[in-house]
Nucleic acid binder design. Structure first.
Length: 477
RNA sequence: GGCCCCAUGGUCAAGUGGUUAAGACACCGCCCUUUCACGGCGGUAACUGGGGUUCGAAUCCCCAUGGGGUCACCA
């Protein structure tokens, strides 16, 4: 059987966002599941908007997610270069071929007049397509315009009245009428090919067998099919996956808040959680299992289980998945992951002073409570920030019986204790003080942090340290 | 507006002619617990509508409706 080869071909005109990442992911999963190859190609033919910074960010985002590729930018390969602006001579060869075979022609219409015509058609509610004005220019006319210094575009000639059939792995058979497609531009006046042309040439040259991309490209496909045919290329399989929508059910875009992959990284989402979440958006595994690691997903992935309907991005579920993946981390791993966030905390100097054992107690205390890694910053404040007491809390703490209890607590409190000892100590405390549990624990908590909620008391004692416990409670005695 | 795609709870989503129509997130309740959270148990909640086809439709067909995409010298 022929080896499968897919590609992800972003244009570096912005950061990698959720939708793009999902396209990349599905390509990756498909390739890895079928022992195929993955290509990363940069489609930078939009000179105005492309930038090397975005290209770098996209690559970094993919790498962070754990998506890698066998051929392409950064890793090279036998079909390079993998940046479209570096492949202009290749496109030129095929343009010449189309020009010679009569499949394409030079067009001298200006952008202004085209925009006017398009607007008029749109208003009349007619099919918006190029008029074909320059289609039958005589060689003499063409040469004259060229001599006048007019810079032409190259258009692909579309024969109307023809049925164009797209066979799509997720959508089935989709039929288009060529009459709805006007002659379209394949080379811009700056000599750079357009997407519809370059994508066909590259996919062919690079031996792509499966084109997996977002549904917004479906209506481009008939144009590309025409080019495949004119050039005599073998047609790959297509799979158009449905879009990811925002809460407002519109295509995901910058308007929807955090949308770039890097933003998720910065907020402390784990790459394996984002990977897991994205895989579940538009695809579902056969079993019931939802929390999965990369290799499990690769093993289960198949295009036949990709849904046709668009999916709304659900942050709640991502959050839940992230918390689940955090719980799967070992203390040691989590301690490392969380450190950069703690470094930005105003209490970092305190954390820095902790010995390894105390640090791990801190991590353990916080582990079940955080959804994103950044949440540690807030959590750590419970332990280290100077407590704030509101009036209500103060009135509770200043009762005489509470004062007596706290006094007893401090008298019994050892000077030094680890987590196990703290647990035992706290457990036995009500008995030692001869008080019911509810009269003991909550006042201590309030006195220590000013808040009725937070990690279990033994954690508080260990992380805070006995001296600070004494100091915080001292004012209530 | 033309063309194209899509349509199961608030969201993700299983389901491919016969099911009490799964499961997950979110929400609500109970339990666990020295608090909150975690966790456990339970609950509310869906086949867009109308026609067909069929002994029988969430599943097949048609129409309507709704949502989305696309109509660039952007990809």
């Amino acid at each position: 059987m022929k080896q499968i080869k897919v590609r992800f071909a972003p244009s570096p005109t912005g950061p990698l966002h959720i939708g793009g990442a999902r396209s990349a992911l599905f390509n990756y999963l498909f390739a890895r599941n079928r022992q195929g190859k993955m290509v990363l190609r940069i489609e930078d033919t939009d000179l105005e908007r492309s930038s090397p910074e975005y290209e770098r960010e996209i690559i970094e985002s993919l790498s962070w997610l754990g998506i890698d590729w066998d051929e392409g930018i950064d890793v090279g390969g036998e079909n390079g270069p993998y940046r479209q602006t570096e492949r202009l001579d290749t496109y030129q060869r095929y343009v010449d071929r189309l020009l010679r075979s009569g499949h394409a022609y030079h067009c001298f219409c200006t952008e202004e007049e085209l925009a006017r015509e398009r607007q008029a058609l749109l208003e009349k509610g007619e099919i918006v397509a190029y008029s074909g004005k320059c289609r039958d220019l005589s060689p003499e006319e063409r040469d004259r315009k060229l001599r006048q210094g007019l810079v032409p575009t190259v258009r692909f000639k579309v024969v109307p009245g023809e049925e164009i059939v797209v066979h799509d792995l997720v959508r089935g058979t989709v039929t288009f009428d060529s009459s709805e497609i006007g002659d379209f531009i394949i080379v811009k006046s700056d000599g750079i090919p357009t997407y519809n042309f370059a994508v066909v040439v590259d996919d062919h040259e690079m031996g792509i067998t499966h084109v997996i991309r977002a549904e917004e490209h479906l209506s481009n496909t008939p144009r590309q099919l025409l080019i495949y045919r004119a050039l005599g290329f073998e047609i790959p399989e297509f799979a158009h996956i449905s879009l990811i929508l925002g809460k407002d059910r519109q295509k995901m875009s910058k308007r929807h808040g955090a949308t770039s992959i890097m933003q998720y990284r910065e907020s402390g989402y784990l790459p394996e959680a984002v990977f897991n979440f994205l895989a579940l958006l538009g695809w579902s595994p056969e079993g019931e299992q939802e929390i999965m690691e990369r290799d499990e997903i690769i093993g289960k992935f198949s295009l036949s289980r990709v849904a046709k309907n668009p999916a709304v991005f659900d942050l709640d579920k991502l959050n839940w998945l992230n918390a689940q993946h955090i719980k799967r981390k070992s203390m040691k791993e989590l301690g490392e992951l969380v450190r950069p966030y703690l470094e930005s905390s105003p209490y970092w100097h305190r954390v820095e002073q902790m010995d390894q054992a105390t640090y791990e107690v801190l991590i353990e205390a916080v582990r079940e409570r955080i959804v994103c890694l950044v949440d540690v910053v807030k959590e750590v404040e419970t332990f280290l920030a100077p407590p704030q007491y509101d009036a209500d809390t103060l009135s509770k703490l200043e009762k005489p019986e509470v004062r007596g209890m706290l006094k007893g607590f401090l008298e019994h409190l050892p000077e030094q204790l680890d987590l196990e000892q703290a647990r035992t100590f706290m457990k036995g405390l009500p008995k030692a003080l001869q008080l019911p549990a509810k009269q003991v624990y909550m006042p201590i908590r309030l006195g220590l942090t000013g808040s009725p909620q937070g990690p279990e008391l033994p954690y508080l004692l260990v992380v805070m340290g006995v001296p600070e416990v004494r100091q915080r409670l001292g004012r209530f005695i």
